[in-house]
C-alpha cells in the first residue's frame, strides 16, 4: 500500500534531462498524463477554441515540446513549473494562430492515451466559461487532474489488496456530493460497525493522499516547488 509520504523521486526536470532515452520518455509520459487535461481545458476555456482545434493543439504542443525539448529549459527561479507550462501553451497557441490562422495538427502523442472525448464531456459537464484568471483556472484543472488520477490509483490499489468495500465506502461518503449519508447509515448498509467505517474510510483517504503526493512529485519542477505545492494542497510540511 502507498505510504503517507511518497518515496524519493527526482523532479520532472531532472528526469527530462536524463541521457537515458527510456527514462526521458517515461518522464515525459508522466508529464503529459498530468498536464494534458489542464492544457486541453485551458485551450477550450481561455482560448475559446473548438474541441477539434483544442485537441489538435494539445497534441501538437506536447509533440513539439518532446521533440524540441523546450520544457527542459525551465528555470526554477522564475516561476513554478506549472506556470511555465501554461505560459508555453499560451505562446504555442499564439504562434499557431499567427502561423496558419488555425491550430495545426501535431504529431501523435504515443506516450499516453489522450481521451479527448472524455475530456470534452468534462468540459461540457463543467460548463466552462472564459476564466477571469487563466493561472487560477489552469491550477484548478491541474489539481482536478491530479486528484482524479489519485482516486483512480487508490481504487486500483484497493482492488489489488482485496479492499473494494473500503473504496465503495469512500465513493459513497466522499465522492458523492449529493449524498449526505452518515457513518451510521453506511455501517448499516454495508453490515459494518461505525468504527470499521471510520477506519476503512481513513485508510482510503490516506491512500488517496499518498497517490496524489506521488503524482504531484512527478509534476513539479523542483523539490522546493513540490514542498510548496504539498503545503498548499495538503497542509503538509515535507522534509
Amino acid at each position: 500500500m502507498a505510504s503517507a509520504f511518497p518515496p524519493t523521486r527526482h523532479s520532472v526536470i531532472e528526469r527530462l534531462r536524463k541521457d537515458d532515452a527510456a527514462e526521458r520518455s517515461a518522464a515525459f509520459g508522466d508529464l503529459v498524463e498530468g498536464y494534458w487535461q489542464p492544457v486541453y481545458k485551458h485551450l477550450r476555456a481561455t482560448w475559446r477554441m473548438t474541441p477539434e482545434d483544442a485537441q489538435d493543439l494539445t497534441q501538437a504542443f506536447f509533440s513539439d515540446a518532446f521533440q524540441k525539448a523546450w520544457l527542459e529549459k525551465y528555470e526554477p527561479g522564475k516561476a513554478r513549473f506549472r506556470t511555465f507550462v501554461r505560459v508555453c501553451v499560451d505562446r504555442f497557441a499564439m504562434n499557431s494562430r499567427q502561423a496558419s490562422g488555425r491550430a495545426k495538427r501535431g504529431g501523435d502523442i504515443r506516450l499516453v492515451s489522450l481521451d479527448f472525448d472524455r475530456a470534452e464531456q468534462e468540459v461540457r459537464a463543467l460548463a466552462l466559461s472564459a476564466p477571469a484568471d487563466a493561472e487560477d483556472f489552469f491550477r484548478h484543472e491541474f489539481v482536478r487532474s491530479l486528484f482524479g488520477r489519485a482516486v483512480t490509483e487508490a481504487r486500483a490499489e484497493m482492488e489489488r489488496t482485496g479492499r473494494l468495500v473500503h473504496f465503495r465506502l469512500f465513493e459513497r461518503y466522499d465522492l458523492d456530493p449529493d449524498d449526505h449519508t452518515s457513518y451510521a447509515a453506511l455501517a448499516a448498509e454495508f453490515g459494518l460497525t461505525e468504527s470499521q467505517v471510520t477506519n476503512y474510510l481513513s485508510l482510503v483517504r490516506r491512500t488517496f493522499r499518498a497517490h496524489a503526493l506521488i503524482a504531484l512529485r512527478g509534476l513539479c519542477g523542483t523539490d522546493d516547488e513540490y514542498r510548496r505545492e504539498a503545503r498548499e494542497l495538503f497542509g503538509l510540511e515535507i522534509e
Binding site: Q37, V112, A125, R144, F147, R149, T152, D174, P177
Partner: peptide
C-alpha cells in the same frame, strides 16, 4: 489510465 472525473464539489471535499 482512465482518470476519474471529479466535480468541483468533490474536489473541495477531497
Amino acid at each position: 489510465m482512465t482518470v476519474t472525473f471529479l466535480s468541483d464539489d468533490v474536489m473541495s471535499r477531497l
